[in-house]
């Protein structure tokens, strides 16, 4: 149920980045989500249009990249796939594992639409 506030939070970041680059609009926002982050992608997608209305990202495409749940075993050293409520080592079954991925909620990148003149000035 906090997907709307998650949207509002990353849109605030996107707006700041857009402003820093003098971007007119944002074309694309890429987020990386793992199942253990607590963020539900379908809910995030539902909340997104509501949150982005009236912002510089109003027409931006939201790309959600799902991250796999993977663990590294501290006992046998294997790196294996796991599931959200069974984070045991896939090789030896031990529970002394470290999560390698699966709990991400990251704003990975944004694609901005900037004026060509602006780009030229920045580049020079």
């Amino acid at each position: 149920m906090h997907e709307l506030s998650v949207c509002q939070s990353f849109l605030a970041q996107v707006e700041r980045i857009a402003l820093a680059h003098n971007a007119r609009t944002v074309d694309k926002i890429v987020v990386r989500i793992g199942p253990l982050s607590g963020v539900e992608i379908p809910l995030l997608r539902q909340a997104y249009p509501l949150a982005c209305a009236g912002t510089v990202a109003e027409n931006a495409e939201l790309v959600t990249e799902i991250q796999p749940v993977r663990v590294a075993c501290e006992t046998c050293g294997a790196e294996t796939n796991a599931t959200v409520n069974r984070l045991l080592c896939g090789a030896c079954g031990d529970y002394h594992t470290r999560l390698l991925s699966g709990d991400e909620m990251i704003l990975a990148s944004v694609e901005l639409n900037v004026d060509a003149a602006e780009q030229l000035r920045d580049a020079g």
Partner: peptide
Amino acid sequence: EGKVAVEVLESLLSE
């Protein structure tokens, strides 16, 4: 043309 891709890699909840 006119597009810039910016890598961010910040938590969605960075605020």
